[in-house]
Amino acid sequence: MIKTDKVLDAKGLACPMPIVKTKKAIGEVEPGQVLEIQATDKGSTADLQAWAKSTGHQYLGTKEEGDVLKHYLRKASEAETKEESSYPHVINNDELKTKLGNEDIVVLDVREPAEYAFSRIPGAKSIPLGELEERMSELNEEDNIHVVCRTGNRSDRAAQILSEKGYKNVLNVVPGMSEWDGETEND
C-alpha cells in the first residue's frame, strides 16, 4: 500500500473518462499531495503520462494489481518550479554518487511516500517533509545527513529545519532525484 492523499475510482470507465475524472480530482487535492487513480482502461497508463506532461503535474508511476491499474500523480506546486535555495551547504548529484558506498552517510529522502516507492537512491531513508519535525528523533545529531527530494526545494527546507534543531552535518543534494542518473531501487 502506497500512502496517498486521495483515491479516484475510475474502474470500468472507458476513454476519455479516466482523464476527465482525473482533471476534476486533481482540483480537489492540495499542491504537493498525491492522487491515486484506479482504472481498468488499458490506455490510461499512456494517457495519464501524456496528461501529466501537458498539465505540469508529476506522474510518479503505475502499479498493476490484477485487472486494476493504480496510477500515482503528484499535484504540482508553484514553489517547486522556482529555483530558490537558502540553505548554504549543498552537494551536487555527482558528488553524492561518489560518496555512496565509500563514506558513512545517511541519505534522507523527504519526498512523498509514493515518490519514494517508485524510485529512490538505494538505502535512502524516507521521512516526508511534512513528517520531519515529529520523526526527527529517528536521526542522530551526529549523522552525516544528505537530504534529497525531486528538485532541491523540499530538501532545502528540510535541511534548514534540521540545522535549526542542532543537526551539525547536513547537506542539501541539488538538484536531486529529477536528474539522478545513479543507481535506484523501488518497492
Partner: peptide
C-alpha cells in the same frame, strides 16, 4: 467528443 473532452481535461 472524445478528443474534445480529453483535450479540455488536459487544460487545452
Amino acid at each position: 467528443f472524445n478528443v474534445a473532452t480529453a483535450a479540455a481535461a488536459s487544460d487545452s
